[in-house]
Design a protein around this nucleic acid. Structure first.
Length: 203
DNA sequence: CTGTCGATCTACT
DNA sequence: GTAGATCGACAGG
């Protein structure tokens, strides 16, 4: 039980104010923070090493670029909520809503480095190589047991089964690059990675 | 190691 | 009907 999760900082979710900013600002600041998840009788945690920022109107790659739909409604809501959606009809992807209410914005969590609760993650998502456990947006939700039922979760309260906490100091450089897996809005540098992490996708 | 393809939901033409 | 914020299986080199 000498796990990082026991550090006091990890029990305090980041505040609404942290997320009430433009998604690119939030995205940069999320690198190195800890995603904490309580599910299946365990507590899991992973350090964020790859994210992407999505705006609303004016961002052609964003779900919210053409206004509200049943799927993306959460993106227009209060900052700090979980926006979980089904991608390609197969994978659940986790975002955190950013910005002021009424204005769409979110940060997609693309990769984590497992920190604690790794056995539970492996049960949720058995893999041969450790690096495959949480090295992708669809992989990490499976490992943490996150699905559509978690859409709209308030990630800013301590009782939540899912939140983001201050990580230990991130020493690695944060690198900006174009978002990947999209075909519009690739000119903007809205993907942010912890340089050198093996869990970050290539490119 | 590389490339291709199927899975199958939401939103848009 | 088609594309999409992905992944894993499989074929070939």
């Amino acid at each position: 039980m000498s796990l990082n999760i026991l550090n006091y900082q990890h029990h305090r979710p980041l505040s609404v104010g942290f997320f009430e900013r433009d998604p690119d600002k939030v995205a940069v600041d999320l690198i190195g923070r800890m995603v904490v998840r309580r599910a299946s009788g365990a507590t899991m945690a992973g350090r964020i090493v790859e994210v992407e920022a999505y705006f609303g109107e004016g961002d052609p790659a964003s779900h919210a670029c053409r206004g509200m739909t049943p799927r993306n409604a959460i993106m227009f809501g209060r900052a700090g909520m979980a926006y979980v959606y089904l991608n390609y009809g197969v994978h659940c992807l986790l975002n955190v809503v950013t910005g002021l209410e009424g204005r769409a914005g979110a940060v997609l969590i693309r990769a984590l480095e497992p920190v604690s609760g790794i056995e539970t993650m492996m049960k949720n998502r058995p893999v041969k190589r450790a690096v495959d456990l949480t090295s992708g947006p669809g992989k990490l939700t499976k490992a943490l047991g996150i699905d559509l039922a978690d859409n709209g979760l308030d990630m800013t309260v301590r009782e939540s089964s899912l939140y983001v906490a201050n990580g230990a100091q991130e020493t690695r450089t944060v690198k900006a690059s174009p978002r990947i897996g999209i075909s519009k809005g690739e000119d903007m540098l809205l993907r942010f990675c912890a340089e050198g992490s093996p869990f970050v996708s290539k490119q």
